[in-house]
Amino acid sequence: MKPDPRLRTSMALVLLACLPGLLTLLWQQGWGLLCNLLLCASAALLCETLILKLRGEPVSLALTDGSALVTAVLLTAALPTLAPWWLPMIAAGTAIGIGKQAFGGVGRNLFNPAMLGYAFVLLSFPSQMNHWPGQPAGLFETLQQVFGGAEHIDAWAQPTLLDGLRHNRSLTVDELFATHPGFGNIGGRGAEWANLAFLLGGLFLLQRKVFSWHAPAGLLAGLSLFSLLAWNGSGSDSNGSPLLHLFSGSTMLAAFFIATEPVSGPRSDWAKLVFGFAVGLLIYLIRTWGSYPDGTAFAILLMNLAVPSLERLALRRQQAAR
């Protein structure tokens, strides 16, 4: 059994498109990103290899189709860079073992594997998942933190823009931008540049027709619309402007690299548009009133469950149009 050459080409293009975003994150977060990448990739490939071997399927599939590496890269972009070494390995192992291979492997997964792995470690290890560095650490310091050679420093639990906005009670948004360490120019400090980089990669994939525009456009439209409707200016009770939400958190990564996952997402264009729009709405609701500062993983997983219903509605819509 040989891997589908179209799948291999698509995965290679996705990995290439992730490069600007990963380099931006590396510049912002330091060597921990490379540690996460190596750990996630190793765990993902090892888990996939072992499961394929147990099934009696060719092990070369784990090394040639590229899907496990894409899952590892998406997890790398989402996980804290100074998390202990076992956390990215558990996330990647869960993503591949439960999110992908438990359903039969490539092309059969019900949920987005990367988001399932991320949600699992977020719910299981909330303390470690909230440990973000305030500034890039050196290589030796990073290795000490990741592999347990040093105690974690509480000051490295850096508050993000979305955390600051959620817990703000007295400052206006303008004052937050001027004083809060998580705020940059239009969105999250650093996150705005990472979002621009992933937007660039996503536009490249659109140009290469790796996926259609419907899911990304739906997500960005849903997030923009509801943040606009609920925006009450720059007062202390503001939930943030549409521009702030578009360039904070994992918005562009979610729009172009996660919501477009072809297996767990819809196949018809109308359903993709509705899927993306609902994901954007859920992200906004979780960011604003939920218990987590960014809601990408939960929004995607919830809408994965709704895909069969969306496809049935899309089919009825097509039949009614005839």
Rank of each mutant, 00 (worst) to 15 (best):
G295M: 09
A191S: 12
L82F: 07
T81R: 01
E141A: 13
H180Y: 14
Q145I: 10
R267A: 14
V263E: 07
G290M: 12
A299H: 02
N195C: 11
G233N: 07
A178V: 07
R267H: 15
L282I: 11
Q128A: 15
S227C: 12
F147N: 09
A217I: 09
P20Y: 12
P159F: 13
P3W: 13
A217F: 15
E48A: 10
T71F: 06
P80F: 13
Q158T: 10
N130E: 15
T81V: 15
W31R: 03
F204Y: 12
A137S: 13
C47E: 00
L87W: 01
F177N: 07
Q207Y: 14
L52R: 05
N195S: 12
Q319I: 11
K209M: 12
A157V: 06
L315G: 03
A102W: 10
L13S: 08
A12P: 00
A191G: 04
Q101D: 08
A197F: 04
M303E: 02
T64W: 10
V146Q: 06
A72Q: 01
A194P: 06
S250H: 12
L162M: 14
E57G: 08
F256G: 02
R312K: 13
D294Q: 14
G265W: 00
T94Y: 08
M303S: 03
L196E: 02
P308C: 14
A155Q: 11
F147K: 08
L199M: 11
D4A: 12
L203E: 05
A119H: 01
E311G: 04
M252E: 03
L310H: 05
G21V: 01
L219T: 02
T49R: 04
L22R: 00
A217N: 06
S238C: 09
H245M: 09
L305I: 12
A137W: 03
I300W: 02
A77S: 09
P262I: 10
L37F: 14
F257M: 02
K2Q: 14
L229T: 00
P58I: 13
K2V: 12
G107R: 10
I283A: 06
S212R: 15
L228W: 15
T288H: 05
Q28A: 14
P308V: 12
L161H: 07
N109K: 00
P58R: 13
L165Y: 04
A314P: 04
M89Q: 09
Q145P: 06
F226K: 08
L165C: 09
N232H: 15
P133T: 12
A68Q: 06
G30P: 03
L38P: 01
M129I: 03
I153C: 11
S10K: 11
T64S: 15
A44S: 08
D65P: 00
A194I: 05
T64P: 05
F275K: 00
L45H: 02
H131N: 10
W231P: 00
N109E: 09
L162C: 08
